[in-house]
Simulated assay, not measured.
Amino acid sequence: MAQNTTEFHSFRHGKFDVTVLSDGHLTLPGEMFAPEANAGERADIVTRLGGEGNLAKAQSNIPLIVTGEDVILIDVGAGNRVQSSEGRLEENLNRVGVHSSDVTIVVLSHAHPDHLWGVTREDGSLRFPNARYVVGFAEWSFWMGPHADALPADRRPYVSAARRDFAAISGRVSLLEDGDAVVSGLSVLATPGHTPGHISLRLEGEVPLIVTVDAAASEIVSFEHPTWSFGFDMDKDQARQTRIALLDRAARENAKLLGFHWSYPGVGRIEKIGAAYKFTSVRT
C-alpha cells in the first residue's frame, strides 16, 4: 500500500502515522457556529472563519491512522448525502494510495450525518467492506433504543438514517466505553453532550494527541468562548461541561489536538488563558 501524502498534512505521532484527509466541507450559518453570540460577535467569527454574508465553511477533517497492520479511519463523512461539497473521503483516500478495502478499522464518533452517512454506498453496501467498526456503547444504545424516538420532528431523519447505518455494521461492530482501547495506544474518551454517546479519541505519544471530533467544534468559538454551544449540540449543558473538562485536560497535558470541523488541517496546540483557551494551528 504505497502512500503519497504530499497533498495532505501528515505526521508521526508515537507509533502512529497520521494523515489528515478531507470529506469536503459544510456551509453553515453563523447561528450554528455561535448560537449565543450577538450580531457583532457572530459577524466577526464568520469573517475569521473566512466566510461572508453570515455563512462560513465547517471543514470535515478525517484522520487516517496507520499502525502495524491496521489502517484506521476516525469517522467517514457524509457520503455526499448532506451537501454537494461533501463526500470526498474515498477520492482522497485513493489519492494517498489507500483503497476502501484496505481499511481495517472504522471508528464512528457519533451518529450525526456528516460523520456517519458515508459508511454505506447508495446501494446499501458497506463502503469499507473489510473493516471492523467501533462505536461508543452509549451512542449505539441511544440511537438504536427508544429514547431516540422522542427527538423533535426535524431530527427524525437522523434517527432513521442512524438505524439504517448501524444496522449495516451490526455484524462487525465493537461497542466500547471510556478508556477502552481501539488498538494498543489508541483509546476512547467519553465526551457526551454533543450527542448522548459522543466519543473522542486519544493517541499516546511523547505528548497525547486528542482527536476532539465535535466535543470542540470550532477552533475559534470552542476555545475563546468555551461556555457557548455549537448549534448541533443535543444537550447543551452537558456538552459545555464536557468541552471545558476536555480542554482543561488537554492544556494540562500539553496535548496536541485534531479537530473535525476546524480549518484544515485542524491540528495544533492549546494554551489556557484565564477562563478561555488559545488554539495555535501547525499552519500558523
Rank of each mutant, 00 (worst) to 15 (best):
R127M: 12
A2T: 14
V107A: 15
H261C: 14
V134R: 06
N80M: 12
G266Q: 09
S84G: 02
R42S: 03
D248V: 09
F128S: 03
I105Y: 08
D23H: 08
D154M: 10
A215M: 02
P226F: 01
H198Q: 14
P63H: 09
L89E: 09
V66T: 14
V76S: 06
I74Q: 02
N80Y: 12
G179K: 00
E219N: 11
K15F: 11
E90R: 00
A255N: 04
F230G: 14
S60V: 14
H25C: 15
V182C: 03
W140V: 09
T5K: 01
V183R: 06
K15W: 12
L89T: 06
T67C: 10
R48T: 00
K15A: 15
A58F: 09
V20P: 03
T104E: 02
A131P: 03
R48K: 06
L257N: 02
A37Y: 05
E86S: 02
S187A: 13
R81K: 05
W228V: 02
N254W: 11
R252Q: 02
E91C: 05
A111P: 09
V96K: 01
H261S: 14
R283Y: 10
R164S: 04
L209P: 02
D70H: 05
L257Q: 00
V98N: 00
G268M: 14
N92I: 01
F260Q: 13
G51F: 04
N92M: 02
G205E: 04
M1W: 00
V213I: 14
T280I: 14
S101G: 13
T195L: 08
G30N: 05
R283G: 06
V188F: 08
Q59Y: 15
I62E: 13
H99S: 11
G50L: 10
L258I: 08
D214R: 08
F11Q: 01
R164E: 05
H115F: 09
R127A: 13
A148K: 02
S187I: 07
S22F: 07
R243L: 03
V76F: 06
V183P: 05
E91I: 03
G68V: 03
E206C: 07
G136Y: 06
M32A: 15
